[in-house]
Nucleic acid binder design. Structure first.
Lengths: 336, 336
DNA sequence: TTGTACGCGTTATCAA
DNA sequence: TTGATAACGCGTACAA
């Protein structure tokens, strides 16, 4: 019931181990007769080479770890999907795992990657600079490509130009006459949040205005949190006239909170989300979003890693990908 | 720059290979002094055991292949996610891959699973009975748990009770007075399609009516196809008064097609989708859907596989999971 | 209780 | 061109 080994094939074909191996890795100098016999034996036994033994022998597993927050988030899924396709094309196999943005889980999974001897890792870390996480990444001792995390040390990474996106979106609302624009995004200290804040502030500065600090909420990307945040914001007496949701998964909660409060988009409040989606396109009204191309970023991340694996001495690269505002009907000038 | 091996640890701790191994697998009878020395050496060298070598030695990789159509589909992602959590808890590592419902790709990935010596596979195959796919599954020679595919041979599988869901949904519409109810679902011959057809027909039969065969479209689950199908259906002179979308990813296309035609849900046409989602809950109007719990099914699939790996002799199990209609505002009685 | 030696399935080196 | 053999990193009988 056990799988046949190269030995069984050799025995059956009445040739030596080496010959079978040579046929398998189609070496040029092998007698056609032997090649034929071996081919037959392989077919007869339904032999499949053992990748484990192979990688033991040549010291490379041909595997790459891919770690994201949660595969159930469609944008992250398409990021992972693009990576998978790119890696498979290059003869590598991705090992995909979800950290839930949880530090301990992330460390545990990196440990798993280390045990399984991944040749590289592409990851969306819970933090750019948490020392434990930085340490866990270093312990891997293989190339790491970070997504949307800007590390102090020189490292390969692929980034989204959130700053630009937020600047554009905020300027768009300011141009309409909005003065009280809320920004709801993730925790401080993490790259996307930092960049979004910068873009938001830059737009205000350019307009010669000052944002109300009370309208900037940087708590967490978790749905329950951002949902509650929106509910709070719109419950205030001096509620914002517009809200920008700076988080990929936060639009449904915002729409629902607004709906529950009995407010109407865009009449009572303007809304901008992040990442194009079925919901944003087909909601009533369709929602303006800041979009970026997760697939392109995934492909780039994979290529970056493959190049780095091929040439560990290469200078680290930092690639930034553009954002694009998709204008729809969820924003109009504020009352009066 | 190479990773240290158990040998390096032994050398540094000035003990034998065997002792290190015994410490690693914490055997009871090992001198605390040695244990301590080894622990220190491991920490000093930042040693991590090589899972590859381990699995070579004990003939088990601790890995399970997980194959789905496309991880970007949120319901499939949560299915995979649940499997991942369950497997990791049990000490197994999932190797996740997407087939795009493409036969060749599915076969190639099963081959990859075989090479990497997966101890079992959970999969959503492109077909129940295509001989090539059946063959590829058999070639694995490890336990396979199928999702939503009912195979002739006895096999472990987890199924969704699509028949029941469709019967309920169809009866609901018939009860409202609809007579021309369209059913748009996947290709014939595959379990979910078969079951949906059966449920749909059963509801008509119970009501003493006959469905118009022209309203039953079984082409493909692909978005472009179902979208075009809906567009065709509603362009007809005798268009249906209600449509049931029997496919997890087909709701956005249907809503959009209806919108483009200038029809209004539910005034002009009633609509029922599959699987609860942001879109169905927050669309205008919210859309009635047939729902089932992908996470529960994923967990069950993982458990089934784990049990089967532990005991290959166990009788094959077939678990069926319930569907539930979530009633919303997308259905009203037809005109006149 | 600890150390030694073999074997897991490959590939690569060497001699024939 | 082919066959024999060592080595990859580990676990485990077996001997000490």
């Amino acid at each position: 019931m056990e799988r046949p080994t190269i030995k069984d094939v050799a025995r059956r074909a009445k040739v030596s181990l080496g010959s079978v191996s040579r046929v398998l890795n189609n070496f040029p100098d092998v007698n056609p007769a032997i090649r034929k016999k071996v081919g037959k034996a392989i077919a007869d036994l339904d032999y499949t080479p053992n990748a484990m033994a192979r990688s033991m022998r040549n010291g490379a597993t041909g595997m790459v770890g891919v770690l994201v927050r949660n595969i159930v988030i469609p944008s992250l899924a398409s990021f992972v999907r693009a990576i998978q396709d790119e890696l498979l094309d290059a003869g590598y196999v991705p090992l995909i795992a979800c950290s839930d943005n949880h530090k301990d889980r992330e460390i545990a999974l990196l440990g798993l990657f280390a045990q399984r001897r991944m040749e590289g890792v592409i990851m969306l870390s819970a933090s750019d600079r948490d020392p434990d996480l930085v340490g866990a990444r270093a312990d891997l001792s293989v190339p790491v490509v970070l997504f949307d995390r800007a590390v102090p040390e020189d490292r390969d990474c692929v980034l989204v130009d959130h700053r630009r996106g937020l600047q554009e979106a905020t300027a768009y609302l300011l141009g309409m006459g909005h003065k009280r624009i809320a920004l709801v995004t993730g925790p401080r200290g993490v790259y996307p949040t930092t960049e979004r804040l910068a873009g938001y502030r830059a737009a205000y500065a350019t307009a010669g205005l000052r944002p109300d600090p009370g309208l900037i909420v940087t708590r967490s990307f978790e749905d329950e949190v951002t949902r509650a945040t929106v509910a709070e914001l719109i419950a205030r007496k001096d509620r914002p006239t517009a809200i920008i949701m700076g988080g990929t998964t936060t639009l449904p909660g915002a729409i629902e909170a607004i709906k529950q409060k009995g407010l109407v988009i865009p009449k009572d409040i303007s809304l901008i989300g992040a990442i194009n989606s079925d919901l944003s396109a087909l909601a009533n009204p369709p929602v303006t979003v800041i979009h970026w191309d997760y697939e392109a970023i995934g492909r780039a991340a994979a290529q970056l890693l493959l190049q780095r694996i091929a040439n560990p001495q290469r200078a680290p690269q930092r690639q930034t990908f553009p954002t694009q505002v998709i204008f729809r009907e969820s924003c109009i000038p504020p009352h009066r």
